[in-house]
Nucleic acid binder design. Structure first.
Lengths: 351, 351
DNA sequence: CTGAAAGCGCTTACAG
DNA sequence: CTGAAAGCGCTTACAG
C-alpha cells in the first residue's frame, strides 16, 4: 500500500503553508496565480486529495448518504436504488447501501437483524442524510422500538422515508398513491366484460397490500361486480408467492376470469400456476400486473401492467433529501400517476 | 438536529478523563469496575457512539468497503451484492455501492461516466477495501487508462476483482470458470438427440461471452455436431437482447433445434421470440440458460439452467477481502462447479 | 495574498 | 487503574 500523502507534504514541496494548500484546494480565498499554479502542480503530481475524514471532522459533513432497503434483489428496490445512486453521485455524494432483511443467506438461515440495528449503524457513520425505502414502515402495525429508532434517526440527520406518513416524526414522507392504478385496472377489465376478478400476492398487514385490497373491494362494489372471499389470495411479493396464491384460487374453484397480481414477479408465478392447471392467459384468464418490474413486451404472454413510474421516484427522493440537507424549504410531495399499459395478457372475458 | 455529543461530555458527566471513557469504550485496557459502570451508564443515557471520523483519522480505517458494479439492476449483481453486504455487515463493515454504468437514467441519456472516475472517488473515501465486479475488467481489450487507474487503486487499498487475472496488478482476482457449464449443457442436449444447437446473447468482445463461445465451438467439434455461423447471435445480456438474437437466428432460417442462452433474462427474451414465430419450447426448440437468475421452477416453461452458485460468490469474495485487510495470507481461489438443473425447457429433439 | 495557531473528536504511548 | 498530552489531517478565523 502506498504511504498516504498529506497536505503537509504538498505544502512542503510547494514551499508554502498548509493553509495555502488548503486554499487552492477549496478555492474559497484568493491565492496568487503563481503560487496557485505551483501548488496545483504538486497536487497533480501526487494525485493528492484531502482526507475526507479530517475534512468531515471539521466541516461536519461526509458527503455520504445512507440508503436502507429490505431487499436489493427485488427489482423494485434495485431500480429505485440505481436512480438514487446516480443522482447522488451527480451531486457529489456517495451512498452506503444497507440491505436489512432479505439477503438469500440471512433469509435462509433466519439470522436477520432488526432494521433498528441498521438505523444506529448508519447514524454512527455520520452520513449527511438517510433514505428509508420500505421495510417495517410498510407494515400496518409498527413496533414501538422501530418508531423510537426512527425518531432518533430523524432527529439527528435529515431523513426521507418512502412510505406512509407517521405522526410526530420529523422525516419527509413520500407516500405513493395506490388506489388510482387499481381502479383503472379493474375498470378496464370490467369494460372487457369480466365480472369475477381476483387478486393475488401481497402480504396481509402490509400497508400497500391493504390499501390496494381496499381499493379493489371498493371498485368491485362500485361497479356492481361479485366480491367473494375466495377471489383473493395473498402471501408475499415474489414468484413463489404468486404461484401459491394463484394455485390456491384456482384449486378452491373460484370462478374468476381475471386476476390482478401485485407485481411482475407475482404475475410470473401466477402465470406458472395457471398453466399448471391447463388454463391459459389471456384465453381463460386475463392477467394484469399492478406494479411493473420488467418490460412486459418481452414476457410470454406480453404482460399488461401498471407502470407506476418507479424510475422517477429515485431522482425525486434524492432531490428532497439534498434540499433538506442544504436547508432549502421542503417541497411539496408530488404523485406520479400510474399508467395502464395494455398488452396481450388481458383479453376479453369469454362468454 | 440534535447537537452531537462527544467523548468530552461523557467524560465530564462521568467525572473521569476522556482517556478513561475511551478505554471503557474499547475495552483494551482494564478499567476499575465501578468507574466503568459509571461511565457506561452515561454512555447509554446518551446513546453515545464515538465519531468514526475521528476514530478513522487515528486508526487509519473506516470500517467501510467499496463495491463497484456496472448495473445493480441486473439480478446477477444484485444477488452478489446482497451476499457481500450481508457478510460485510456481519464483520462490522458498511459498504458504499457504486453503480458505474447502467442506471436507467444515465443509460437513456448517454451521460455515463468512466469507471475510473469511480475508482478515484472510492479511494478518496478512504475505504478499507474495494470489490470490483464486472465492468471494463470483463472486456477482452482493456483501455490503458482503466489499467492505470486499477493499478493505482490496488496499490493504495486491498482490492478483490471478480474477473480474469491481469498481469502486474496487485489485486486478488477471482475468475469464474466458464467452460464446464457450457460443456455439460451441450453434452446433455446432444444426449437428447439435438444436432444443431445455437447460442444467443452475450456481447462480442466481452471475456465471458468469448470464453463461452469458444467452449461452445470446441464442444460442438468434439461431439461432431454442426457448427454454422448463423447458429450464433450475440448482442447483450438483457431480455431485449435475447429477443433480438433469437429472432435473428430464427429469421435467417437457421435450422436449430436447441438454444443455449447467456442467462435467464436472455432466455426470457428468446422465449418471447420463439413464441412470436409460432414455435414452442421445448416442443420445437429446447432452451437452456447458462446462468441462473431466477428460480426456473416458476417460469413458463420451467427453465432448464446452469446454476453457477453465484450466491456463494459474495461471501467468498468478502472473506478474501477481509483476510487481506487483516493481513492474513491470501487464500487460493476456489471454483464453484456449475450444476445443470434440468427442467421442462429442454426436451428431446424431434425426429 | 499568506502564515501561525486553534480546534474538529478521538486513541494511545507515557507517566504516575 | 488513570490522567495529561501529543497527534491523526484538515479548515478557518486571526493577524499581518
Amino acid at each position: 500500500m502506498d504511504k498516504n500523502i498529506t497536505i503537509i507534504q504538498i505544502a512542503k514541496e510547494s514551499g508554502v503553508s498548509i493553509a495555502t494548500v488548503s486554499r487552492v484546494l477549496n478555492g474559497t480565498v484568493p491565492v496568487s496565480p503563481k503560487t496557485k499554479e505551483r501548488v496545483q502542480n504538486v497536487i497533480n503530481k501526487y494525485h493528492y486529495t484531502p482526507n475526507p475524514l479530517a475534512q468531515g471532522l471539521i466541516l461536519k459533513q461526509t458527503k455520504t448518504l445512507g440508503v436502507i432497503v429490505p431487499d436489493i434483489t427485488n427489482p423494485y428496490f434495485s431500480t429505485l436504488f440505481s436512480e438514487i445512486e446516480w443522482s447522488a453521485h451527480q451531486s457529489g455524494y456517495s451512498v452506503i447501501l444497507c440491505n436489512t432483511a432479505f439477503s438469500a443467506v440471512s433469509y435462509a438461515s433466519g439470522e436477520r437483524e432488526k432494521e433498528e440495528t441498521y438505523f444506529q449503524m448508519i447514524l454512527d457513520k455520520k452520513v449527511d442524510g438517510v433514505i428509508i425505502a420500505g421495510g417495517q414502515i410498510d407494515l400496518c402495525e409498527i413496533s414501538d422500538s422501530y418508531i423510537e429508532a426512527l425518531k432518533r434517526l430523524a432527529s439527528t440527520v435529515p431523513a426521507v422515508v418512502i412510505g406512509r406518513k407517521l405522526p410526530d416524526i420529523p422525516c419527509t414522507f413520500v407516500n405513493k398513491e395506490n388506489d388510482n392504478g387499481i381502479i383503472m385496472a379493474i375498470r378496464y377489465l370490467a369494460s372487457l366484460g369480466h365480472k369475477r376478478i381476483g387478486f393475488v400476492g401481497g402480504e396481509r398487514g402490509v400497508y400497500i397490500t391493504e390499501s390496494r385490497l381496499s381499493a379493489y373491494h371498493r371498485t368491485l362494489l362500485e361497479l356492481g361486480l361479485e366480491d367473494e372471499p375466495e377471489f383473493v389470495a395473498t402471501s408475499d411479493y415474489y414468484m413463489a408467492d404468486g404461484y401459491n396464491a394463484a394455485l390456491h384460487i384456482l384449486d378452491c374453484g373460484a370462478p374468476v376470469t381475471a386476476l390482478l397480481a401485485m407485481n411482475d414477479n407475482v404475475s410470473l408465478g401466477a402465470l406458472r400456476a395457471i398453466s399448471d392447471r391447463q388454463l391459459s392467459v389471456p384465453g381463460d384468464i386475463a392477467l394484469i400486473s399492478c406494479d411493473r418490474f420488467y418490460d412486459g413486451d418481452y414476457l410470454t404472454p406480453r404482460l399488461t401492467s401498471l407502470d407506476r413510474h418507479n424510475d422517477m421516484l429515485g431522482r425525486y427522493v434524492i432531490k428532497l433529501l439534498l434540499d433538506e440537507i442544504q436547508g432549502l424549504p421542503a417541497q411539496d410531495a408530488i404523485d406520479f400517476l400510474p399508467e395502464l399499459v395494455i398488452r396481450e395478457s388481458s383479453g376479453p372475458a369469454r362468454v
